[in-house]
Simulated scan of single mutants.
Amino acid sequence: MKSCQVETTSLRIAIQKSGRLTDKTINLLENIGLKFDGYKDRLLVKSLNFDVELLLIRDDDIPEYVQDGICDLGIVGANVSLERGADVEVIRDLQYGMCRLSVAVPKSSGFHTMHDLNNKRIATSYPNLTRKYFSSRGIDVKIVEISGAVEIAPRLDVADAIVDLVSSGGTLKTNGLQELEVILHSQSQLIRTRKPIPAEKLDLIDKFLIRINGRQLAERSRYIMMNAPRESLEVISGLIPSLKSPTILPLAEPDMIAIHSVIPTDKFWEVMEELKAAGASGIVMLPVESMIV
């Protein structure tokens, strides 16, 4: 792609204009404090309260725009970046848009192993990943590239099997297909250009990542409060898998204390019964909006 870049001091982030990641991406940006005055009918949208602008484009174009330095960052599915083969840096997974790229066959086809597909037609919107995967397995296939509605290709006798994105598997079942093998697991990722970035933009990226870090950590954490006998403090403190030492507050009853802490959500349910057995009562768990550690 030839650069058509307009120089800007704002941090420019490419996101999907319309698709399965769009709403969740906008939600993420709003949850880290960025405000936008409408975005659905515009190509370039500037934040009202942070020096960042969004470029809303087709998800297939995001990796190349970031690769060429037209955008500093991009938010896109790993499946798209890998299919496009763009030379970008993956900064981190964003924990949404989970899916898998799978080989699927008609239930009535009699195909039970990957080698049953030797010399068969495979319909897909991911020709590069599909070709690479089958080649790595030593299986010769004919790739039939389709831009949409891949799941109906076998019913139309366009292909013998498909390679497509799967989330719940409902679309496959509706079309009489079943998964044969998973090629890769995918989710949304934050990617960055390898082109030189001015110092002022690097500073903006650091600030942006602090917000992303805080939001991701908060989503995995919960704020807990409980009352407990003062004599149980040492035992309870040892049970709480917190990031820092818990906050201890006195209560009206001199032999009782309140304990506040932030813990990983998945760990809370593992230790709840132990906390109760150690004397904790009135245990309350609350969501955390953001965290800076």
Results as ranks from 00 to 15, higher is better:
204 L>S: 10
199 A>N: 15
222 R>L: 11
200 E>R: 02
184 L>N: 06
130 T>P: 08
201 K>T: 05
149 A>H: 04
229 P>C: 12
174 T>M: 15
161 A>G: 07
192 R>G: 10
217 L>E: 09
126 Y>W: 04
226 M>W: 04
185 H>S: 12
138 G>K: 06
156 L>V: 00
182 V>G: 09
178 Q>C: 01
209 L>Q: 05
191 I>Y: 07
223 Y>G: 04
123 A>Q: 02
190 L>Q: 06
131 R>A: 14
169 G>F: 06
182 V>Y: 01
224 I>H: 03
193 T>L: 01
140 D>K: 12
223 Y>L: 07
133 Y>L: 00
161 A>M: 01
156 L>G: 13
137 R>K: 15
200 E>H: 14
202 L>T: 05
132 K>Y: 04
217 L>T: 11
193 T>Y: 09
137 R>A: 11
153 A>E: 06
181 E>P: 11
197 I>D: 12
132 K>G: 02
168 S>N: 14
184 L>S: 07
159 A>S: 14
143 I>Y: 09
216 Q>S: 10
170 G>Q: 11
165 L>E: 15
155 R>E: 11
154 P>V: 05
200 E>L: 03
170 G>H: 07
169 G>S: 08
184 L>F: 00
156 L>D: 10
199 A>R: 08
214 G>S: 08
221 S>K: 08
127 P>C: 01
137 R>Q: 15
154 P>N: 05
146 I>E: 15
195 K>Y: 06
230 R>M: 06
171 T>N: 15
213 N>R: 08
185 H>P: 02
211 R>C: 06
187 Q>A: 14
129 L>R: 12
180 L>V: 00
197 I>V: 09
202 L>H: 11
201 K>W: 01
192 R>K: 14
222 R>T: 15
225 M>Y: 07
184 L>R: 03
148 G>H: 09
134 F>Y: 11
173 K>Q: 15
194 R>T: 11
163 V>M: 08
230 R>F: 08
228 A>T: 14
139 I>Q: 04
170 G>T: 03
214 G>K: 03
196 P>R: 01
207 K>V: 01
160 D>M: 09
138 G>P: 13
209 L>G: 08
127 P>K: 01
136 S>E: 13
212 I>H: 08
208 F>D: 02
192 R>C: 13
199 A>I: 12
201 K>N: 10
177 L>I: 05
157 D>L: 13
162 I>D: 08
222 R>N: 04
134 F>M: 02
199 A>T: 12
158 V>M: 15
148 G>T: 02
151 E>A: 06
226 M>Q: 07
130 T>L: 00
165 L>I: 12
216 Q>D: 11
219 E>T: 02
208 F>P: 03
147 S>G: 04
137 R>W: 05
189 Q>F: 00
166 V>G: 10
188 S>I: 00
203 D>R: 11
200 E>P: 00
125 S>C: 11
181 E>Y: 15
199 A>Q: 15
